[in-house]
Structure formats: structure tokens, C-alpha cells
Simulated scan of single mutants.
Amino acid sequence: MPRLPTRPTLPSRPIRHLSAATDAARVVAGRLAPGLARAPLSFAGWSTAEFRSYAASPSRSATPQRRAGRDAVTRVNAATGNIPIEAALLARAIADTAPPVGVEPNPTLWDVLERYLPDCLSAFEVSSRRAGRESAEQLLIAQLRLLHSVALNVEQAEAEHNERDLQIQDRFLKERFASLTPGELDLTVRPPATASIRALDAAGKTRAKAAPTEGRAYLDAEADPVVLFRRQSPGPWELGLRLALPRRSPVTLGVVEESTTGAMQFTHRAGRRVFTQRRATGFRAAQVDLTLAVRLSSPRRFLVYAEGLSGREPTDTVLFLRADTRSQAELATTLANHPRAPLTVIASGYETTDGLIVRNESILFPDLRAACDGYGYRRITWLDRHSPVV
């Protein structure tokens, strides 16, 4: 009996091709059943701490726990172009009273962060259309001052384990907002100036420490994020930025500025992969500096960003920001270098009557346009998501 021809043995494929086949299968499955395909996770608006927590988790299946008030912070940032600077600073200062991630906030503080603060923003949107913008702005600031005072009192009572004061603050909030419904905060009457509401100066309401006349102020995005650079002389602000990086790390460092007239200004500089001068530190690892000098003639606000190269490991770095010949702040941050989050908004800054307030933001975005939208810089025409018309 003749033997049947045997089927030739195919060489086994390396295991690494399985992932590509799996990805292709997912694409086909997504086309056939769009509802079953899961969209890629977006990191826009994540803090660098949240991203590092996610990247360190074994499964990367669940998003990390977020700090109380984080959604309100995202909303405030996006509205900063439409609300007074004082209101934005007050709202962020209220959010700063939130405990670290993993620590349960006091119920009264939770109400302030997750209920009353968002309701203030919703009420402003409604009131600015009904009662006029100027009146709504004044009432918004008054209400935020009240909430900030309560948040500080609760924070102090928690630290002192003072149950009586906690009960007083909780009762005050419930009485003051007894007739409210979610999203319908009553801004028709100014909050009474009682002894339970602290007097607020510019430094207090922003929780900003003054930058030392000599030396450096360290800004931690989660614990101690704000500094106040006092004006030494009238005129424009001359900022010196220095981003410390490992060698062969191509990064773009930039500043987006909105002037008091509403004009937008973009300044940036890219560090090259090679031919970058090494900084003499005395240590073994090669370090280079990406520097940028910025002149702020009449700023209302600004942000500082850095964009790394996608596909590399996250880079921990520090931005050194100098506002005059002596005062300087260190802003520790991370460049995620992820394809969906290559850009980090490192800092935001606001011009006030007391000086320049700078905050360590450390928030991730996929591109420059998304970052500008996330911080309410909307008077910009874009060629593409990376390139504004200038």
C-alpha cells in the first residue's frame, strides 16, 4: 500500500508573536463587536503619582485610588480662564486640605470637597447667566472664602482631635446650606461675616509659603505644592527655568502664558538627543540641563510643561524655577514618556497683588492642546494637537 505524503513540519514560531496575534484578534473582535472592545485607558488629567502607582501594579487592570476633591480640582483647572484668579486659588487651597490618598477624610471635610465645592462652581455657571458676571464672581469668591475657612477649621480640629470644633463646623455647614439641592447653590445672599470665618489675606487663602530670599523652596505636588515669589521691583517677571535630566533624554520644555489683555504667548526649547553638554555635578551619572529664560511682561497666569519621548521608562526629574537673582523653587516631577501621556504640566503660575504664586501641578496629558484645554487656555487656534498658530 503506497504511503500517503506527510505534511511538512512547520517551524515553531517564537512566543513573542503571540502578543501580536492577540492584538490583531482584539482588533478584529472590536470591529465585529464594538461593544465588547475596551478603549485604551486615558491618562489625561492623572497626577504623576497616580501614574507611577498604576505602572507599579502587577496587573494594571484597575485605576489607582484618587485623592478626595480630585474631580473638583480638574473642574477648577478647566474653568480657570472663566473665573477670577482669586476664586481659582481659593478653590485649589480648599482641595489642598484633603488628606493623602488612602486616608479617609472627615465627613465634614468630605462634604466640602465632594459636594459644596463642585456646587459652588455649578452655581457660578448658572448665576453668571442669570444675574450678571460681575455679581456672580463676587458671590463665588465670598462662598469660596467661607468654604476655605471651614476647611481650615476642620483641618485644625482634626489635628487637635477636637471633636467639639468638628461638630460646630459640621453644624454650621448644614445650617448655612440647609435649603440647597445638588448643583443649585444659593448665591443670592452673601455669607455672614461671623467669628467662625477667618479673615483671609492673599498668602493665607492660597496656603502659599513665601520663597526664601536666598536658598530654595521645595514643592511637593501632593503635600506642599505652593510658593509665593514676592515682587522685588516693579516691571516684568524674568523667569529662569532649568530642568535636570539624564543624558540622552530628548525633552521639550515650554511655557504657555496668558496676559492680562487675553493674548497668548508660547515659549519653548527642545533638548537634543546628542551633543548636549554634560553638567559637572561630581557624581557618576551623566546629568544635563535643559534651560529656558522667559520674560513675563504682564501675565495673568501661565503654565510650564515638559514633553518627553514616548516609549522610554518614566523619568523622575526636578524643575528649578528662579524668579529673581536669589529666590528659587524646586518642583519635583515625573515625565511619564508614555505614548498616551508624554506631556507633563509641571507648574502653574498666577500673578497677584502680593507677587507670583507658583504651584507644582505634575499632571499628565497626551499633547499640548489637551494640556491647554485642561487648564482653560481656550483662546488658541491650532494647526494640530501639538502646534498652535503663533
Rank of each mutant, 00 (worst) to 15 (best):
E134F: 10
A62R: 10
S127Y: 13
R164K: 13
I141V: 15
P99G: 03
R92V: 11
G81V: 02
H148F: 15
A56S: 15
A62W: 03
E104Q: 14
N162G: 06
Q156W: 13
A159M: 14
L146N: 10
L121H: 02
E163F: 12
V73L: 14
S128A: 08
S59G: 07
P107I: 11
S61F: 06
R133Y: 03
G132L: 08
R70A: 15
V150P: 04
R129N: 07
E86G: 11
C120S: 11
L113T: 10
N106V: 10
R145G: 11
G69A: 04
L146R: 13
D96A: 15
H148S: 08
D119W: 03
S59P: 07
A79S: 12
R164T: 15
P58C: 05
D170F: 13
A136L: 07
N106F: 14
I83D: 00
A131E: 12
L117W: 06
A142M: 01
G132T: 11
R145T: 05
E160D: 15
N153E: 14
H148C: 10
P100C: 02
E158W: 01
A68E: 00
V126D: 06
S61I: 04
P107W: 01
L152G: 09
I168C: 07
E104V: 14
A62E: 10
R60M: 11
N77V: 01
L140H: 01
A79R: 09
R129I: 08
H148P: 01
V73S: 06
S128G: 01
A123R: 08
A56N: 12
D71C: 03
C120V: 11
R92F: 11
V154R: 05
R129L: 13
A56V: 08
R66I: 01
E160V: 13
A68G: 02
G69F: 00
E104S: 13
P99Y: 07
P84Q: 03
S135C: 08
S149P: 03
V73I: 11
L147N: 09
P99S: 05
L90R: 09
A56I: 08
Q156T: 14
S122C: 11
Q169F: 15
R129C: 09
P84M: 02
A55W: 12
A131P: 07
R67P: 01
T80C: 06
R145D: 09
A157R: 05
A98T: 02
A87Y: 01
P100M: 05
P107K: 07
V112D: 02
L146K: 10
P118L: 03
T108D: 04
A72Y: 02
L109H: 09
E104R: 12
D170I: 13
R75V: 04
S57V: 08
L166E: 10
W110P: 04
A136F: 09
L147C: 04
A68W: 00
R60S: 04
L166R: 12
A56M: 09
E137R: 06
L144M: 08
P84F: 00
Q138D: 12
E86Y: 09
R60V: 00
A72W: 01
A151M: 04
E155I: 13
D170A: 14
A151H: 04
A62T: 08
A123W: 11
V103I: 15
G81C: 04
L113W: 07
D71H: 12
A157Y: 07
R145M: 08
E114M: 10
A142S: 14
E114Q: 10
V126P: 04
L144P: 02
